[in-house]
Every structure is written in C-alpha cells, then in structure tokens.
C-alpha cells in the first residue's frame, strides 16, 4: 500500500491524500474503509439536522430565491 506523501502546499497535500485513500480503499474491505468514511458523513448529517435552517435561508444561501 502507498504511504502518504506530504505535499509542498495545501493543494498537493490534498491530492496526495486522495491517492493515499484510494490505495487504502483498494487494499481493504468495503466494510473497513466505509466505517471510517461514515464517521465523517454521519456527523455532517447529524449536525445539519441539529442546526436546522429554514427553507428561505437555505435557498438564499444558495442564491436560488425565485
């Protein structure tokens, strides 16, 4: 499995992580990598549900008030 190479700047760092994580996915079972990914995804959803935004405020944020 590839080791994570530090990047010279933020962009390169992020792209190196993309490659590292892709290698991790290919070298581990779907259950193992997805459990880690899900911590991030589920916490975002829980946060959104806890700090509710009105429809109007959300559409305003997206620039989609018609």
């Amino acid at each position: 499995m590839k080791k994570l190479k530090p990047g010279k700047n933020n962009k390169e760092d992020r792209m190196n992580f993309i490659k590292y994580w892709a290698s991790y996915i290919k070298n581990n079972s779907d259950e193992v990598w997805s459990r880690q990914q899900n911590i991030l995804i589920n916490s975002q959803i829980q946060n959104a549900r806890y700090f509710k935004m009105s429809r109007k405020d959300y559409l305003d944020l997206k620039g989609e008030i018609r």
Binding site: D30, N38, N42
Partner: peptide
C-alpha cells in the same frame, strides 16, 4: 468494491445516513 460487468459496480460498504436518504 468492483465492477461486476461494464454497467454494474458492487459496493459492500456500510451504508451511512446519506446513502439511506438516497
């Protein structure tokens, strides 16, 4: 996670809240 054929991918991932919503 892999292609079973050209038009099918099988993902045995643990589903998260976003997947269930979808």
């Amino acid at each position: 996670m892999k292609f079973l054929d050209k038009k099918t991918i099988k993902v045995d991932r643990e589903l998260n809240e976003l997947d269930k919503f979808v």
